[in-house]
Amino acid sequence: MNLTPRLPLSVLVVEDQHDCAQSTAELLTMCGHAVRVATCGPDALRDAAVEIPDVVLLDIQLPGPSGWEVASRLRERAGGRQPLVVAVTGCGSEEDRWRSADAGIDLHLVKPVAPADLIRLLDWVGGHLAARTVPTTACG
C-alpha cells in the first residue's frame, strides 16, 4: 500500500462513530492528507464553510440532518469550487444510491470500505487535481 499521495488533499471526514472517524483520519493523515473530522451535520457544514475541502467522506446516518441533507447544503454553499462528495455509509440499497445522487453525492460507497480502496480513490483524485494545475506548453 502506497502511503505517499500524488497530491496531498484536504479531506473532511463526517462520521458520528468516533472510532471509525479517528481511524479513517489517522490513515489519511499517514498518507499525507490534511484531515478534519466532523461528527454531525452542523459541524460538517461549519467546517466546510471555513475551508472548502477537496474531498468530503460523508456518512449518511448522522445525528441531526442526514448526510443527504448535508450534501445538498454543501452543494448550495460551495459556489464555484465544489468538493468531491463521497458517501461512506451502511445504506446500500438502490434507493439509497438514488437519494445520494439526487443530493449531489458523487460516489456512494458501502461500509466497510477497504483502506486500500480509499487510498486509491484519494490518489486518483489527487492525480486529477494535479493534472489540472500542471501548465501545458504549446508545441510549435
Rank of each mutant, 00 (worst) to 15 (best):
N2W: 03
L9N: 02
L9Y: 01
S10P: 01
V13W: 00
V13Q: 04
V13E: 01
V13Y: 05
V13S: 02
V14S: 03
V14K: 06
E15P: 08
E15F: 11
D16R: 06
D16P: 05
Q17I: 10
D19K: 06
C20R: 11
C20T: 13
A21Y: 02
Q22D: 15
Q22A: 15
S23D: 12
T24F: 05
A25F: 08
A25G: 13
E26M: 14
E26W: 10
E26R: 14
L27D: 02
L27A: 13
L28P: 11
T29L: 04
M30K: 15
M30D: 15
C31F: 01
C31V: 10
G32F: 00
H33D: 06
H33K: 05
V37R: 12
T39C: 10
G41S: 08
P42D: 12
P42V: 04
D43V: 04
R46S: 11
A48I: 14
A49H: 06
A49D: 03
E51Y: 04
E51F: 04
I52D: 06
D54F: 04
D54P: 03
D54I: 06
V55R: 08
V55T: 08
V55L: 07
V56A: 11
V56L: 11
L57I: 06
L58N: 03
L58W: 03
L58V: 02
I60D: 03
L62C: 10
L62A: 09
P63C: 01
P63A: 05
P63H: 00
P63V: 06
P65H: 07
S66I: 10
G67W: 09
V70D: 00
V70A: 01
V70N: 03
A71Q: 02
S72A: 06
R73S: 02
L74W: 12
L74R: 15
E76Q: 07
E76D: 05
R77H: 13
A78W: 15
G79Q: 12
G79E: 12
R81V: 07
Q82S: 09
Q82H: 13
P83R: 02
P83G: 01
L84Y: 13
L84M: 14
V88M: 12
V88D: 05
G90A: 13
C91S: 14
G92K: 11
E94Y: 02
E94N: 05
R97W: 07
R97F: 04
R97E: 08
R99W: 14
A101I: 01
A101V: 04
D102F: 11
A103D: 05
A103C: 00
A103N: 00
A103R: 00
D106A: 04
L107I: 09
L107V: 10
L107Q: 12
K111W: 15
P112M: 08
P112Y: 09
P112F: 06
V113N: 11
V113S: 13
A116I: 00
D117R: 09
L118C: 11
L121H: 12
D123F: 03
D123E: 14
W124C: 15
W124V: 10
W124Q: 15
V125S: 05
V125G: 04
G126T: 10
G127Q: 05
H128L: 01
H128G: 03
H128Q: 01
L129D: 13
L129A: 08
L129V: 11
A130F: 08
A131G: 03
T133L: 07
V134C: 09
P135W: 00
P135I: 02
T136L: 10
T137L: 14
A138W: 00
C139N: 09
C139L: 13
C139D: 12
G140S: 01
G140C: 04
